[in-house]
């Protein structure tokens, strides 16, 4: 697809969408949002960028391969779950820092877990969309 307007707008929008996805991730514990919706919005940012500027450009903007992002997300989620075990409690027990922070609320392992979900969703979605899209480009 070659559209100057889309290409220009996508540069702006991608950034906005990524910031919005982080916002969704952070507010997710007590309000609508969270790792899954945040990850999807982030993935849609990259997909939009890919539509406007081609899949190779989007891949290089993503920097890591989707596989690695999925792996990192899972590692973060596992670590968040294991934190409970380190404290002598069952797997996945939420541990909270008592002091509230502005915007985020309180810090705790559930946020870390959400971060893992965010990256896993981002990785899976970009993996599927990129492989489908690149398939389509080869055919043309």
């Amino acid at each position: 697809m070659n559209s100057v307007i889309l290409a220009t707008v996508s540069r702006l929008l991608t950034g906005v969408l990524l910031v919005f996805s982080v916002f969704l991730l952070l507010r997710g514990h007590n309000l609508p949002g969270g790792g899954f919706s945040g990850g999807l919005v982030a993935a849609s940012a990259f997909v939009l960028f890919a539509f406007a500027n081609g899949f190779p450009a989007a891949r290089s903007m993503l920097f890591f391969t989707p596989h690695v992002i999925i792996g990192c997300g899972l590692v973060v989620a596992i670590v968040a779950g294991l934190a409970g075990n380190l404290a002598g409690l069952p797997f996945l027990t939420g541990l909270w820092d008592k002091t509230p922070l502005p915007v985020i609320g309180k810090l705790g392992t559930p946020l870390l877990f959400d971060l893992g979900v965010y990256f896993a969703v981002l990785g899976v979605t970009t993996l599927i969309v990129f492989s489908l899209g690149e398939d389509g480009e080869e055919e043309e």
């Binding site: 899976v124 979605t125 599927i128 492989s131 489908l132 398939d135």
Partner: peptide, 12 residues
């Protein structure tokens, strides 16, 4: 969502 995305890719 995940399953459907995969299924579409598979059908393709």
């Amino acid at each position: 969502f995940g399953v459907l995305a995969f299924t579409l890719a598979m059908v393709h």
